[in-house]
């Protein structure tokens, strides 16, 4: 269960603590985490595919395989489209990251997204079993994917920032041995029993000691919006995920239309 432990390290933020990023890299087993990403995508895709299996007459294997493959691919392709711009613009505002450490960062972020998504699996499968409304399933999945995407992005952005500042922190530590910071961090013994203990910031918290500059924040905000748009449209391009009960199974549908129009139509359809 080594893989589970590694995933847990990422989720708990252990892998992205500033002292673990000193050499400018997240230390994760890349192959193992990639495998885990596909397994988690499998889990969620499986939960998703219940809807078309329950609501269609015949069962075909591709109905099961398609969402399983598509779920991790959706996140991966979205990052592929949007990441180069983030990388370059991040360099523009002062980062010195190597391409390899960037790749590891992407993998870790994907793992976070898919862990969150897969944890919603039980809820999705429950609704898939107990719903015959196609529109509802689409809307539910849009919401859950959005939650997973947003949390994964928060992780990515915080870690990107930490990777950028880690060498600086290390430099500071080496040039000035820190007796002062050490004493300030020891909790006082006579303190009130309920005093909040010193906590490590979680993997998606901002570092209190090194806040992002306003320039970095601006870049990051714009990029989040773009990521959202690309991801949404990517999902549209790769549809069907859920599979309309009345239609034959296809791997892909013809191009045309856009995500937001479709979500709107589903919302209107659902409310009518």
């Amino acid at each position: 269960m080594n893989l589970v432990r590694e995933l847990d390290r990422i989720l708990r933020g252990e892998a992205t603590r500033i002292e673990n990023l000193r050499d400018g890299e997240i230390r994760i087993p890349v192959v193992g985490i990639c495998t885990a990403i596909f397994i988690l995508g499998f889990v969620y895709g499986f939960c998703m595919s219940f809807f078309s299996i329950v609501n269609r007459d015949g069962f075909e294997w591709p109905m099961l395989v398609a969402p399983v493959v598509k779920v991790p691919l959706l996140f991966m392709l979205t990052l592929l489209v949007t990441f180069p711009s983030l990388y370059v613009f991040n360099a523009l505002v002062g980062s010195r990251l190597s391409l390899l450490s960037l790749f590891r960062l992407i993998i870790a972020s994907l793992a976070v997204m898919l862990m969150v998504l897969a944890s919603f699996g039980p809820i999705t499968s429950f609704f898939s079993f107990s719903t015959e409304s196609y529109s509802f399933m689409i809307l539910l999945n849009v919401v859950l994917f959005a939650i997973a995407g947003i949390l994964g992005l928060m992780f990515l952005l915080q870690t990107l920032h930490r990777l950028t500042v880690a060498p600086i922190v290390e430099e500071l530590r080496r040039t000035a041995p820190p007796p002062a910071t050490d004493t300030s961090e020891t909790p006082s013994d006579e303190g009130i029993p309920m005093a909040p203990p010193q906590r490590e910031p979680s993997s998606i918290d901002a570092l209190p000691s090194h806040p992002m500059s306003s320039k970095v924040k601006a870049v990051v905000r714009i990029w989040i919006v773009i990521f959202g748009f690309v991801g949404a449209q990517m999902a549209w391009l790769m549809r069907p995920f859920v599979g309309a009960p009345g239609m034959e199974f296809t791997w892909f549908r013809p191009r045309g239309g856009n995500f937001f129009e479709a979500v709107w139509n589903n919302l209107v359809h659902f409310l009518n």
Partner: peptide
């Protein structure tokens, strides 16, 4: 309760509340 538990666990962990 059981259906809601996995996501609650993952999100708590991600937000540093494990």
């Amino acid at each position: 309760f059981a259906l809601c538990l996995p996501s609650y666990f993952v999100l708590n962990t991600l937000f540093g509340l494990r």
